[in-house]
Design a protein around this nucleic acid. Sequence first.
RNA 1: CGGAGUGUAGCUCAGUCCGGUAGAGCACCGCCUUCGGGAGGCGGGGGUCGGAGGUUCGAAUCCUCUCACUCCGACCA
Length: 577
Amino acid sequence: MRTSQYLIATLRETPADAEVISHQLMLRAGLIRKLASGMYTWLPAGLRVLHKVTAIVREEMNRSGALEVSMPVVQSAELWQESGRWDKMGPELLRFVDRHERPFCLGPTHEEVITDLIRNEFNSYKQLPANFYQIQMKFRDERRPRFGIMRAREFLMKDAYSFHINQASLEQTYQLMYQTYSNIFSRLGLDFRAVLADTGNIGGSTSHEFHVLADSGEDDIVFNSTGSYSANIELADGLIRDLDDGSADMLQSRELDTAQAHTIEALTSLLDLPATRLIKTLIVKAVQSDTNPHGLMALVLRGDQELNDIKAEKLSGIVSPLTFATDEEIENVIGCKPGCLGPNHLDFPVVVDRSAEKMRNFICGANKSSIHLADANWGKDCRFDMVADIRKIKEGDLSPDGQGELLIKRGIEVGHIFQLGTKYSQAMNASVLDENGRSVLMTMGCYGIGVSRIVAAAIEQNNDANGIIWPDAIAPFQVAIIPLNAHKSPRVTEISEQLMTDLEKAGFEVLLDDRDKKTSPGVKFADMELMGIPHRIVVSDRGLENNELEYKSRRAENAESVPLASVMEFLSARIAT
RNA sequence: CGGAGUGUAGCUCAGUCCGGUAGAGCACCGCCUUCGGGAGGCGGGGGUCGGAGGUUCGAAUCCUCUCACUCCGACCA
């Protein structure tokens, strides 16, 4: 390809509405342009990258035995009503009606459509297991699209759905997908981690997310140094250091006048005690019932620990999303304002985190204004109804498998695999006959990859002051050829053209910068670097005098000379395929 | 949806407080010079100042309404 025949849409300055580096560079390198919030046009160079990512995903999915299909983007409301998600989904499901006033939505995911397809096609256990996938634009009317392509409303996704006769078969395919995803992200040249994850709205039991590590990521992921444990912080478990073993003798509790000290921080300085001696009591809303007429629940943690909302939301009887009780509600039921709350004499459920369960002689609120209890103890002064893991783990906690300390890093979620179980097959009655002729609900799994997001994530991980640095596997072009003074030197032109032809014949993708003499060498160097083309050849009279070309890797500091005669072998050895 | 902010040329921005014929740099077009790191000179084209309404002799500027976009929070590939 020649730049004169191509769209080089580079920008010298950073558009004002792009905040993160990948968004800025995608605009500056001329990969995308915005149409509206969360909706982008892919320009030729950007589309080349997107297609390369797509091709790798497709190859590996095919290798795993999955079968490619293509399902409609527009889906009828009936299916969504059948699964129950029409009402559950909320406004990110973009709904509209056709000319007959029949309701439809733009597909944000395709569990309903594939389940409908398979319940009609499959009758026998002999047809299982099966795994179907597609690579297609999805639409989710995000509350807040941001970071360009990273969280767009319209985005390219690979989604796969597997069907099984039982859980054991699902687990087999799940493992295969786990391995397939690892292969895909390795081939893409990305630094990634697979982590245990929450299942969220999609439902199901086991789930793993695949994260590309990058400081701009929106998720905190937790892992230990040996790699034996990794999880999203939403559900990460960790062993807390210096946990009270509860072996000290119980003392007699006494009341302390703590005046205006209403926060853990204020109490630690007032009493000159570490936060680990204190107990933190949070009052949240719970489902109202005969046994819980106030509709409240107390969540209790050690003073230095923080609540993990997502873990808490899984407690039975709690209101989801997690909602804190108002000051008025607390005052009406308990008789004092927040700041002096404690897990004593509460007539609604008390859930205590493992960090606080075995504490002895602790400080907690006395549920009286300006009064705390010192040397309080479970059983004597306070009671709880159950122990749960509801704390947010911290960097430095010990790995739950005993292997080292936990680290926390930011990650960009680019893949997510789920064991769905029978959630959809049950709602939509998708069954086959087993070997005994009995009707059995199919067990399902689903597996997503954010294909367009990968493009942004790859840039977040691979860039410098001059622009993008593509991994070879997904670069829009592998080699840039820059002829210098071509308008004066027929030899430079001839060699450049010949090299492009030879490289293209050998299967490489080449961009020859043949823009005319008004485009100075500096502009060409800058554009090719901004676009992130990983290998560069400069053809100049100066070099040709010695029968040499100049090669520079986008990642390297300096250029090197290459004999003209051996340039093909030289490049073949350096370009990863 | 709550909070904050921005809309003026393709891009980056000045002009708005204090009303008086719409500007700069880059990009683009033509000619000349230059040619290994975003060149220089001369000449040019390009704007419903986000939109609607109002105040005024006169509005980018003041007032009202509205739309779009960005950032921060709760959700997701």
